[in-house]
Design a protein around this nucleic acid. Sequence first.
DNA 1: GGCCCGCCATGACATTTGTCCTGGCCGCGC
DNA 2: GCGCGGCCAGGACAAATGTCATGGCGGGCC
Lengths: 201, 201
Amino acid sequence: MIRLLLAEDQGMMRGALALLLGLEEDFEIVAQVGDGEEILPKALETEPDAALLDIELPGRSGLDAAADLRERLPGCRVLILTTFGRPGYLRRAMEAGASGFLVKDGPVEELAAAVRRVLAGERVIDPALAAAALSAGPNPLTQRERDVLAAAVDGATVADIAARVHLSPATVRNYLSAAIGKTGTRNRMEAVRAARQNGWL
Amino acid sequence: MIRLLLAEDQGMMRGALALLLGLEEDFEIVAQVGDGEEILPKALETEPDAALLDIELPGRSGLDAAADLRERLPGCRVLILTTFGRPGYLRRAMEAGASGFLVKDGPVEELAAAVRRVLAGERVIDPALAAAALSAGPNPLTQRERDVLAAAVDGATVADIAARVHLSPATVRNYLSAAIGKTGTRNRMEAVRAARQNGWL
DNA sequence: GGCCCGCCATGACATTTGTCCTGGCCGCGC
DNA sequence: GCGCGGCCAGGACAAATGTCATGGCGGGCC
């Protein structure tokens, strides 16, 4: 019997996946969570064989949770299941010790198969996405540049960003300028979009 | 037997919902589409009793498709199923003649029940969302203001927007200023976010 | 030790952006 | 007819933004 933990914030998606995987003879969903903070506690409590994690979660990113799991529950395989096939996400997932990376497009049939293959020791990764991740190269942004960009997503002014990150407004502008340069864009919003597109945030 | 059409772009979600609804004794999924353009042709071909439509679709919005269906296939009830419970979406869905409006949070069990209730002639709407839609009031933005805002989403400059909408840069700035004023925001990006938040785009 | 980075900050500067005002052109309602 | 509002454009001005140069601080690496 394969014991599964399922982390997904959209209630309907979570319920549908749980029902679906529950239909498989050898699968058992031992935990369902909708918040990233709950993943580790629930996993420690139920000790699943595999965890199916969404990335964009309230509370704590599925990628961070994956790293937690590798450290605290090494016997549990981690599968990332996400809407967006961003190269940087795949890279971070691999660095966090994930065994599989699936996108929410593609047929549901893949899902159970992927879980089984991961449990058998295989790595499951979309080949096209793997190629994209390699060709895209690593994240060129420094920590601070990421912080500042992340604080700029919702159209905040320099002053707002400076307050959020506890920096001088002038420094913020310098980091923004650097990020704009590195992403090859023309203004902060384009830089934010480019960084998100690549999974660099 | 209730004949259903299902429109949803995420393959995994679409497959999961189809399997799930297919489990109901009296449901039959007669068509599945992942593109908004395909909704009307498929519906005319299969003549379903109800259509379950996502809003954010490639090709054509689920809201526009809903209007198409009301006009060309009045016997078909329309249920909108969307990730975002934006007040403006609900309003537009009602104006397009939809009988139900569900958000993708909330349990899957609601889904089949909602379809049955809609087929029985009821309207199915999240009460909290209905209240929000009423309190938010109608869309205050004019057509041109929406156009210009929509063209500004990805951090385009005034010149870019002007080229896209075939307007003078000065006019674009005026429309942006008007949109910023009407949304009560401080710059174009905040205006874009506010407008999207309310489903005004 | 010297060198390279990342980090933080400031000043100066050109460009872009947001605001306000003026004006003209239409269509609609009273 | 008159007023109102949406549509289009331009000018003038203040504020925000993006760039560049300069400087100091600290930690790695050879």
